[in-house]
Write a protein that binds this DNA or RNA. Structure first.
Lengths: 190, 190, 190, 190
DNA sequence: GATGAATGAGAATTCATTCAT
DNA sequence: GATGAATGAATTCTCATTCAT
């Protein structure tokens, strides 16, 4: 099974995201995905070993895409509140612009299939974070604790709110957005 | 005539939690659940209309149980940092002691089936929060913003960390736990 | 299994007729019938060995009832056109007044289960016909042929028309009814 | 890509007829039919939406085949006793040569599923009859009544006898056959 | 490379029947 | 005698996957 047609993989990925988001994992069959992607179900097997393989690869693909989203190309990662704000807003913006993909990731992040992926692949999604956090701790800009804690204090609230707003339909307005960032920043800043 | 058995529903629930957690929703079949619960698959249909119905009822059951977990019976909900700390720790303790149930809830909270439940049932999981938050805002104890924001700033980080620690196997130690609470408190306190 | 309560058997029979007629044999489950009869499904097994047994007994019961319907109690079966007309109309009237039962019989008369009954039980549904037909042949009133042929020439057309009218909803009027009898009589009279 | 096979539908039809005739509708499962047709049960679902769909399509197919059987290709439908005899015998011959198919039709013609078909599809099985009957009424060849009555007087008796002879095993001999036609003809002729 | 056809395995669900009270 | 509870077996149907072209 070699990659033959990148554009076709993309179509399959998009179809999978769409179907999974609307019907859930348990409701997403290969034939639905195939139909949505406008290919034959058999074709999917030219590009992926099996369904699990496809889902896993899609998950990794999106996870990595998301990882990059925090940082814009040229951004200098100086250790400052401004940098954190930029990163934070980049992330927010990315999520809002890619709700479907984000939703897919959330949909799967708790399923046993994916947990095994994360174990096996030990994908380090965002190495850049490590260095920024470490630098900022040395600077005394942020509290001196485990990076996981910092990450969670910084991003979990906004992620939760996005999910919630998606399901209720009520979007955050700009004031609320800033409030959340400022609060998250208070949590981690020294 | 044998007597319909409340304990049997419990057994089915426990089996469902176990199977879903180990095999995911998509891998959880009624027969697996039945075998785990040590009843016939047909028996499940005496207690539930169908699979969806069972999952939904289980979800609502656990969600409500979780809602109550924040508050111990006698707790006076005076508006003070101590109250917030107690609630926060109650929640943490509950989650740690009921990881399987917590995991089940997380597993489902993103699936379309459940979103429909939350819409339909409009379960107000924790009415007590509303009054505590409102009171504390009036007091000037916490920041004056939307309760959802407060809730997320307070609980999302620890929830994220629990999930993460469950999958990596590294538990939070007491210091870290306190650190997370203090940081979350900084986020919402005035 | 002894008969314990005749009225209960009747209720079960009526329920079975109703359910079978509305849902077909394949759609008629013991529990539907039980619910319709307002007894527990288990109760049916006090009166009948199993489902087949119940259906068969009901079939035989109705078939025999129908057999008697041709003849009114006091009717003298003199060999005359009038007698044939009376019998014929009795039958028609019975069918129209018991369409549900008639329909049930028709529903089953072609199914293998029932064919076996008729073989095994050799129920002679209408011994009285034999003597009437035989007498009338000797008299020269009707054609001298096999009784089955006579029976079919006399009753099949009206039976077919009843079934048809039931499904189309268009009933026969009195003129048509007489026409059919007269035609059937032409067929068998000498 | 294997080619979808018309012959396969035929095999499924034949299997269905066989299974239904020997086990009744209620005893005919998709897997029995599939085994008899020597295909996988799943394959049937490539050709039909579901079991009902298959049965209905088979019913319509056979009904239409039967409708054509009355008339041979070249037959001139002059209004004469000879024409009626030819049609009548064609029908008899067809039924005898296709007892299984005929039996299948009878098996189903009383079931609620099929009644709905006939309502929905309003298949006019034999438009040719209408014109023949109408012409013959104008000629004064047959009695001047509703076509349904004529149809039933002409064909019900022989149909009943065929069914009966099938279940008892006693076939009609040539004399009896002629007798039945002549009697039926007396019923409708003027 | 692409695909419609085909299928074995398994899914949810129902059913006739038995059991314990 | 009556019944709700319980279930093994069967039913319809779907699905991931393979095959032949």
């Amino acid at each position: 099974m070699r990659i033959k047609d990148d554009e076709k993989v993309t179509r399959i990925y998009q179809a999978a995201i769409k179907v999974v988001n609307s019907d859930g994992f348990q409701g997403s069959s290969m034939s639905k995905i195939a139909k949505e992607a406008d290919v034959s179900a058999a074709t999917i097997y030219l590009y992926f070993e099996n369904k699990d393989d496809m889902i896993k690869k899609l998950f990794i693909h999106l996870k990595s895409k998301m990882g990059h989203s925090y940082f814009s190309e040229e951004s200098d990662l100086s250790s400052s509140k401004g940098t954190f704000r930029t990163i934070w807003l980049n992330h927010y913006q990315y999520v809002m612009e890619n709700l479907e993909e984000y939703n897919f990731l959330e949909n799967f992040s708790n399923c046993p299939l994916i947990e095994r992926i994360e174990d096996e692949n030990k994908v380090d999604y965002c190495p850049t974070f490590e260095s920024l956090f470490d630098k900022s701790k040395l600077n005394g800009l942020i509290i001196n604790t485990n990076n996981d804690l910092i990450f969670s204090l910084l991003f979990s609230p906004i992620n939760y709110l996005v999910k919630k707003s998606k399901s209720t339909g009520k979007m955050l307005n700009t004031n609320e957005l800033i409030e959340v960032f400022e609060a998250s920043w208070r949590a981690i800043s020294k």
